[in-house]
Write a protein that binds this DNA or RNA. Structure first.
Length: 228
DNA sequence: TACTAGTCACACGCGACGAC
DNA sequence: GTCGTCGCGTGTGACTAGTA
């Protein structure tokens, strides 16, 4: 069965009622079984669970054979420019600390695969008490609904020792967040472009970056991006 | 040709600090 | 005290270049 990201979300949250459900992680080696209480495997395991759930629901999808590259899942088996789905999980008590994308590789990929900006992000928040995991919330978002500004750059990024590594999310569900999410993909791309101008390593070769992305987007989608 | 080491891309988590 | 922001570290898989 072919589904869109929105239909997948509806099936998971409205029909299957995943929010509030509980689970636990166990590991068995020979005759000894342990319940896992550490959090560093939870994300991968929830992702694996989700794929198994999709198989049980007879939902068409294809996993990316290279687990290290974008996206996690193709929902459209024929058109690889549509139905791109990233799955993210985070510890609800600590907030969303995951990476939206690598800053350099994302910027470069938009030059040739600008349709990537329209990808969907399925985000699952969990709470772990002992070995028990509870699904606290589930969201389906676009990257511009997760990204925002910060006090250092027009786009919130992860910077280590003056080097930008990743694009990171704001806390989109909090009312106390100082910086809100962007309202459109154009606003997000403008902030990414301005960040590239401010960042010394990309400042010099950024003159045509945004125009190339706009041109590539038109070629792939037929739609125009209007960025002031 | 097979193995090793290094690099890259991505993911996850933690502590310090300041604002509310 | 709680929450959000910022800065940082660590781990893993894929890929590639060097070497025996």
């Amino acid at each position: 069965m072919k589904v869109s990201a929105e239909q997948l979300y509806e099936k998971l949250v409205t029909d299957y009622k995943l929010i509030g459900q509980k689970g636990q992680i166990t590991f068995k080696l020979k005759d000894i079984t342990v319940e896992i209480e550490t959090k560093d495997t939870v994300g991968n395991l929830i992702q694996e669970w989700l794929k198994e759930w999709m198989r049980s629901e007879k939902i068409d999808f294809e996993e990316n054979p290279n687990t290290q590259t974008f996206p996690d899942i193709f929902l459209d088996m024929k058109d690889r420019k549509k139905g791109l789905l990233e799955i993210k999980t985070f510890d609800f008590d600590r907030g969303p600390g995951f990476d939206l994308a690598n800053f350099d590789s994302y910027s470069n990929s938009l030059l040739t695969n600008s349709y990537r900006v329209d990808s969907d992000y399925l985000i699952l928040a969990y709470q772990m008490i002992g070995s028990e995991i509870t699904i606290k919330d589930v969201w389906l978002k676009k990257i511009w609904e997760l990204a925002g500004a910060s006090s250092t750059y027009p786009l919130k990024v992860q910077e280590k020792k003056k080097v930008i590594y990743n694009i990171r999310p704001i806390i989109w569900f909090s009312k106390r967040s100082k910086f809100g999410a962007f309202k459109s993909k154009e606003e997000f791309l403008k902030a990414l472009n301005e960040t590239r101008y401010q960042y010394p390593k990309t400042h010099h070769d950024n003159a045509h970056w945004l125009n190339k992305v706009i041109k590539n987007y038109k070629e792939h989608t037929g739609s125009s991006l209007v960025i002031n």
